[in-house]
Design a binder for these strands. Structure first.
Lengths: 349, 349
DNA sequence: CTGAAAGCGCTAACAA
DNA sequence: TTGTTAGCGCTTTCAG
């Protein structure tokens, strides 16, 4: 087993000092091009690679980025935050960082402080989703670059990466109105969820702007959750009206599918009788018949943008607070257009 | 900004040497209990935490575990490997390790060698899924503990964590036979996939053991992939027979759903006319109507077991090769039992 | 059981 | 442009 080469071996073989080699390794200026070449050659010959822990100790930089998520966000069936996380992983790679993941309880607990913070093993932190203020305070107290993803804290000036929920809602509602719908219901479930609230606001705004009347009987805003059952309950509520809506905008796909389930159980024809638009573009929206029209969110991009911000902050040591709103896009499928084919599928099934 | 305490500060305040404090930190023996207490108290007072990079450099241990995955495995729609990865993340946490993730091409490329290997930034490596032999050779050459997950290499003796595909297939087929089926088809798609092959073998074995005749006309084994379309094609093939099977065992849920799609398009009654069992227990199997009976694989557990193995190997520096087969379980849903409710759902939809 | 001292491999002033 | 010299904070013999 050959000895692993160190920077010392490279320096020796090149008849140069450690610092010169170090300068080459780190692509620093003020190195003669010839010298650089020579050092590089020897590095390649020896198959030398600096050790992470050694440079970490010397430079006080770990080369890692922490990713913090509350456990309830992570255990959700929906891979929303998982996707964001994977987005950070891939982006981090291109910047020569690794992501260290950890989950914490929603409220701050000293016993749960991520080990990577205690051990100074990250150069910046990404926090995804809503977390307790205690966490924000603690992390800021560590004087590390921080970026929030899909969450905003008013009292603090922190860089954030957000979804354009308002625009998404607008696109969805515009689509329905453009298709001739005037009687449009909204399923929000628990609209205290920040994203859900924004989608609700977007819904109202667009309806108003387009001159389409709002009808409180067609709004389901008092759920405890934003789950399948809420969509189902919304359907119960809406179809109990004497005047029923012809189209539904659900604040997420899960509720939209719950709504569809109610209709299917009663043999009602989705899209022909009632058009449905969801939000999130989850996998299940593709498996369902008819496939669900929805608003696609580029989750991975949220993660990759967050990493880019963090990397900038680490490099420039700047405290410029940025707020990035990631656009969304409407994906039109059969739940909002009754083409001949779709109808036949419905009948067949 | 207060200065961050070091081991030196602790030693000074305790009027002890660095080494004694170090012994306490690392829970080593040969420390007077009184001394230990005293040191611990001061550590708590100061809020001291050893720095990862410092101990890393001194101990030549990074505190990280590498997770290697081929890019094609990861980009799949199925979150199978993502789940395994998350399993490793959570298990790693309980052992005070972090996971460093990276993807590589299937075949070895020197330019793609994970940075964490070059930089000696991991103490062990988990490889998930099938990878090129070149990678195995390279990683073994680094003399690091290795555990393979959902993959086995014959020519090498490496620790592995595998799914009990044979048992899963047996459970599925037993279930069908127990329900009175004698004419059972198999959808394998491309059975060169190791897992698929095992499921195929399990299918044949069980059929033979139970004395149920095999019929080549009801086997779909020549696909290029193991995707939706294969299930669809299998249906085309099986239903073209004069004598059609009454039950199907698909080597994965995706193909099972493809098969269901064919039946639905033709108004055929799933479970009443043809029962279907899948394998993997993917989300979509729950969204589909009727819901798919399938074999559940505890993906996260594959990951957590792999971590436990790696941690053992790192700690004991032992080279004992272990092979763990993780059990699976049959999940019975409506695609294999035609209750009144299910039938009505079918008719409604 | 505790202390002294020598690194681990690299970076970063500061000199030259 | 390159070399010298201190550390970074911890672990780990080896003495005592």
């Amino acid at each position: 087993m050959k000895k692993i080469p160190t920077i010392r071996d490279v320096a020796k073989k090149a008849h140069l000092s450690l610092s010169t080699v170090s300068l080459v390794i780190n692509n620093k200026a003020n190195v003669n091009e010839e010298t650089r070449q020579k050092v590089q050659t020897i590095i390649d010959e020896l198959g030398y690679h600096p050790r992470r822990s050694a440079r970490g100790l010397a430079s006080q930089l770990s080369g890692n980025i922490g990713f913090i998520l509350t456990d309830d966000h992570f255990s959700q069936a929906e891979p929303f935050y998982t996707k964001i996380f994977l987005g950070t992983e891939f982006e981090a790679r291109t910047h020569n960082y690794y992501i260290l993941l950890t989950t914490v309880s929603r409220t701050f607990k000293a016993s749960e402080i991520p080990r990577f913070l205690l051990e100074h093993n990250v150069d910046g932190v990404i926090v995804a989703g809503e977390v307790g203020g205690g966490w924000i305070d603690y992390i800021m107290g560590r004087h590390l670059p921080v970026v929030l993803v899909d969450y905003e804290v008013n009292r603090r000036s922190l860089s954030t990466v957000l979804i354009d929920n308002r625009m998404g809602a607008q696109a969805a509602v515009d689509h329905l109105i453009d298709n001739g719908h005037k009687k449009i219901g909204f399923i929000g479930g628990n609209i205290t969820h920040p994203s859900i609230k924004d989608r609700y606001v977007g819904f109202r705004e667009t309806m108003t702007n387009r001159g389409v009347p709002l009808n409180d009987a067609w709004m389901y805003l008092d759920g405890e959750t934003t789950a399948l059952i809420d969509g189902y309950r919304a359907a119960e509520k809406f179809f109990a009206c004497e005047d029923v809506p012809t189209a539904i905008f659900a604040a997420n796909d899960v509720m939209a599918i719950g709504f569809m389930q109610y209709m299917k159980e009663r043999g009602m024809k989705i899209s022909e009788e009632t058009s449905i638009v969801g939000f999130d573009n989850i996998e299940a929206g593709l498996q369902v018949i008819p496939r669900l029209t929805t608003v696609n969110v580029h989750c991975e991009e949220l993660g990759s943008i967050a990493v880019r911000r963090i990397v900038e902050m680490i490099a420039q040591k700047s405290d410029v607070v940025t707020k990035t709103v990631v656009p969304v896009e409407l994906v039109v499928r059969e739940s909002t257009k009754a083409s001949a084919k779709d109808v036949s599928v419905l009948i067949d099934a």
